[in-house]
C-alpha cells in the first residue's frame, strides 16, 4: 500500500515533526516500503481472535492513596530548557 505526500504531511503535523519537501519524497518511499511489509497482516484470518494488548494476562494493581513524593522542583528545573518563577517557559500559548 502506498502513502501519499498529503498523508505524510498530515501525519508529520500530528506528530509535530517538521519535514521539508525533499524529506517528504524520501519518506514516501521508505514509509511505502514499510507499509508494504505491514500489509502482510491483511492475509491473516483473525475473525474470531481477541486483540492482545499485553503479553501477560495480568490485571492492574492499585496503589494506596498516600503521598510519597516531596518537592524536587529545583532538581527538575535545573535540567529544563527555560524556566522563570518556578514555571516552565514556552512560546506563547494561544487558545
Amino acid at each position: 500500500m502506498s502513502i501519499s505526500r498529503e498523508d505524510i504531511e498530515k501525519v508529520a503535523v500530528l506528530a509535530r515533526i517538521k519535514v521539508d519537501d525533499e524529506q517528504v519524497s524520501a519518506l514516501e518511499k521508505d514509509l511505502g516500503n514499510i507499509l508494504d511489509l505491514v500489509d502482510q497482516l491483511s492475509a491473516a484470518d483473525t475473525d474470531s481472535v481477541e486483540p492482545m494488548a499485553h503479553p501477560l494476562d495480568a490485571v492492574q494493581r492499585l496503589r494506596p492513596d498516600e503521598v510519597t513524593e516531596t518537592n524536587q522542583r529545583e532538581a527538575f528545573q535545573a535540567i529544563a530548557p527555560a524556566t522563570e518563577d518556578g514555571l516552565y517557559l514556552v512560546p506563547k500559548v494561544i487558545e
Binding site: I17, K18, F76, A80, P81, A82, V90, P91, K92
Partner: peptide, 19 residues
C-alpha cells in the same frame, strides 16, 4: 522541548518549537 532535553534555537511560536 518543554521540560528537559533538546529545544530548538529561537522558536518563533509554539508550533515551531515543537516541530
Amino acid at each position: 522541548g518543554v521540560r528537559y532535553g533538546y529545544r530548538c534555537e529561537d522558536p518563533k511560536d509554539l508550533m515551531d518549537m515543537y516541530t
